[in-house]
Amino acid sequence: MASPLPAVNTYSLSNYSYLTTKHPKIHKHTSHADPFDRMKLNYMKDGMRTSVEGILVVYERNHPHLLLLRQIENTSYKLPGGRLKPGENEIEGLKRKLTSKLGSNSPDQVPEWKIGERVATWWRPNFEDVMYPYCPPHITKPKECKMIYMVHLSEKECFEVPKNIKLVAVPMFELYDNIQNYGAVLSSIPQQLSRFQFRMIIKS
């Protein structure tokens, strides 16, 4: 008999809301090359970039959806998260990033983030867009390691995001194998989550 899949409780999208109460997020780069120029400078100072991102799942119409941040200016989608500080613990760093991206401006209203297991690890061999779910064997000095974790949401939550960002729920079937619209990392998440059982918790 097959072993039971690890369960993840999910709650209705209607249980969650968000406010655009934070100041707009100011982009640090103005062209496609700028982020990689900045990455080069940081690499020379701190070495390989280490980043963490969180997967937050809800359900809508009996189907799992992923909560993503969408830049209003260029309609690009991202998981909430970001770069760790040098020497920072991955779990604590992800909690800090989730609070920065989704948490309230009031310290007493910040969600109690419950970080689960690591779902995937991606590697950036060079200062360019391309990332791989493994480190190519000929690469001895990768430029970035991105770790993606499951985040277990509470039953209800009110998130707060910058004014120029939207929090959207994207169905898994839209992400699946849709590299053209969502990129390699996001479009691979449905496969990576296939080892989980999503339990839809319905409250009367």
Results as ranks from 00 to 15, higher is better:
Q71I: 05
Q71V: 10
I72G: 00
I72E: 13
I72R: 12
I72L: 11
I72Q: 15
I72H: 00
E73A: 13
E73M: 05
E73Q: 15
E73Y: 00
N74D: 15
N74E: 07
T75I: 02
T75D: 12
T75M: 02
T75E: 14
T75H: 15
S76K: 10
S76D: 15
S76H: 13
Y77G: 00
K78C: 01
K78R: 11
K78D: 10
K78Y: 14
K78G: 00
K78W: 14
L79Y: 02
L79P: 03
L79A: 04
L79I: 11
P80K: 03
P80T: 04
G81M: 14
G81L: 14
G81I: 11
G81K: 08
G81D: 11
G82S: 08
G82L: 08
R83N: 13
R83W: 04
R83G: 08
R83L: 07
L84I: 09
L84S: 11
L84E: 13
L84P: 06
L84C: 10
K85E: 15
K85H: 11
K85M: 12
K85N: 09
K85S: 12
P86V: 05
P86S: 12
P86L: 05
P86W: 09
G87T: 12
G87M: 12
G87R: 04
E88M: 05
N89E: 15
N89Y: 10
N89K: 09
N89G: 02
E90C: 01
E90R: 05
E90Q: 09
E90I: 04
I91A: 02
I91R: 11
I91N: 04
I91T: 14
I91L: 07
E92T: 10
G93M: 06
G93L: 10
G93A: 05
G93E: 07
L94Y: 03
L94W: 14
L94M: 06
L94V: 04
K95D: 02
K95N: 01
K95A: 02
K95M: 13
R96Y: 05
R96I: 03
L98M: 05
T99Y: 02
T99W: 00
T99C: 07
T99L: 09
S100Q: 07
S100E: 15
S100H: 13
K101N: 15
K101C: 14
K101L: 01
K101I: 01
K101H: 10
L102C: 11
L102A: 06
L102K: 04
L102H: 04
L102G: 09
L102E: 06
L102Q: 04
L102S: 07
G103M: 13
S104E: 08
S104M: 02
S104Q: 05
S104D: 14
S106V: 07
S106W: 02
P107M: 11
P107Y: 13
P107H: 09
D108N: 15
D108T: 14
D108I: 10
D108W: 01
D108F: 00
D108C: 11
Q109R: 14
Q109M: 09
Q109D: 11
Q109F: 03
Q109E: 15
V110C: 08
V110E: 13
V110Y: 00
P111K: 06
P111R: 03
P111W: 12
E112K: 02
